[in-house]
């Protein structure tokens, strides 16, 4: 039997990259009203140039690029976290980094730090993310079982959400509350190129740090002692990944709000395609994450609803049942 393992890695990479480019282009062209853009393309050049250019560069382009970056970050961070903890249920959402980032960003928004200093938002997100992750890690311990890890994650997530609720509760005006709540639902609409620039440095640095951990994550497959005997500095690996995830997730969440389950679902779907090797999973999972978020963002534009459904809501609605299925399956394999 020609198994999935024999799929050529380069072919997989190229296929996913092509799919991503195709999706990005369709995403530029398709809106909640799919036809005007295409009609505009075929209309008289003088008429179309200004409107079309404006919509493309000011509305669609930032949306597509931010979705790509945020999706890739979520896929990559999920793969890295699962590799580090050697646990297919570990994700930025479960291990506190996403809710920590949300809390950091809400604090920055609430106290108006972001209006005074543009980078305050992602920086606050990064710190919140790092703090939450370290807390979960300390709570659960190194070789935590799935249950311990989830419990620790739940505890820290609950705390972060409680603090966010407190800030919402204390917010001076209902408008501020609405703004924060809508932001938290997770969306890539109405973002500007400026948002993209704010997001970019932390995202790229985080990616770079994570992609440099491939061999370390591979070695961890054999357990911590064996990895250490293979020359992998475990403490360094852990901190490098924590900081990398904080940088990338902090940047992404502060611009898009919370978008859950991509970090869980994507690495899981991609893992068999790379023969379960955590190092190889990183790049593939990043591409998969970008594709998944672009798809989700296309879906929310095309789903007919009175108000556009936020993309974070859609990924949660689709992702949560998937998570349940994972738990049921892992329970079956244990018995």
């Amino acid at each position: 039997m020609k198994s999935l393992h024999s799929i050529n890695q380069r072919q997989l990479l190229v296929t996913l990259a092509l799919l991503l480019v195709l999706l990005a282009i369709s995403s530029l062209l398709i809106g909640s009203e799919p036809w005007p853009m295409i009609q505009a393309l075929f209309s008289h050049p003088d008429q179309r140039s200004s409107i079309l250019a404006l919509i493309l560069t000011e509305v669609r382009l930032p949306r597509v690029l931010i979705a790509t970056l945020a999706g890739a970050t979520l896929g990559l961070c999920g793969a890295a976290m699962q590799g580090l903890l050697r646990n297919p249920l570990a994700t930025p959402g479960l291990t506190g980094s996403a809710s920590g980032a949300a809390l950091g960003a809400v604090i920055a928004l609430y106290f108006g730090l972001s209006s005074r200093f543009a980078l305050a938002l992602p920086v606050a997100g990064m710190f919140g993310s790092l703090l939450a992750m370290v807390l979960v890690y300390l709570l659960a311990g190194r070789d935590a079982s799935v249950t311990t890890l989830i419990l620790a994650g739940v505890a820290i997530n609950t705390l972060a959400m409680a603090l966010i609720s407190l800030l919402l509760n204390l917010a001076p005006s209902p408008y501020a509350v609405q703004e924060l709540v809508l932001w938290m639902l997770g969306s890539v609409t109405d973002r500007s190129l400026n948002d993209l620039w704010i997001m970019l440095p932390g995202t790229l640095l985080g990616w770079l740090l994570m992609l440099g951990c491939g061999h370390g994550l591979d070695a961890l497959t054999l357990g911590e002692e064996t990895a250490a005997s293979m020359g992998i500095g475990l403490n360094r690996l852990r901190w490098q990944l924590f900081i990398a995830i904080a940088l990338a997730v902090g940047s992404a969440v502060s611009i898009t709000g919370s978008i859950g389950f991509i970090g869980l679902v994507v690495p899981h779907l991609m893992r068999p395609l790379v023969g379960y090797q955590p190092g190889r999973l990183l790049t593939i999972s990043a591409l998969g994450g970008a594709i998944m978020l672009l798809l989700a963002d296309l879906a929310v534009r095309l789903i007919p609803a009175a108000t556009e459904i936020k993309v974070g809501v859609l990924t949660a609605v689709v992702g949560a049942p998937f998570f349940l299925w994972l738990i049921i399956r892992s329970r079956r394999s244990q018995t």
């Binding site: 393992h5 050697r86 061999h215 591979d218 070695a219 961890l220 497959t221 054999l222 357990g223 064996t226 293979m230 020359g231 992998i232 893992r271 023969g275 379960y276 090797q277 955590p278």
Partner: peptide, 20 residues
């Protein structure tokens, strides 16, 4: 007690030995 966390293929697993 060597535990192997992911179900790698045999060749991939032996290849990990090159990491040093």
């Amino acid at each position: 007690h060597s535990q192997v966390s992911w179900p790698l293929t045999v060749r991939r697993l032996v290849e990990l030995g090159r990491i040093p």
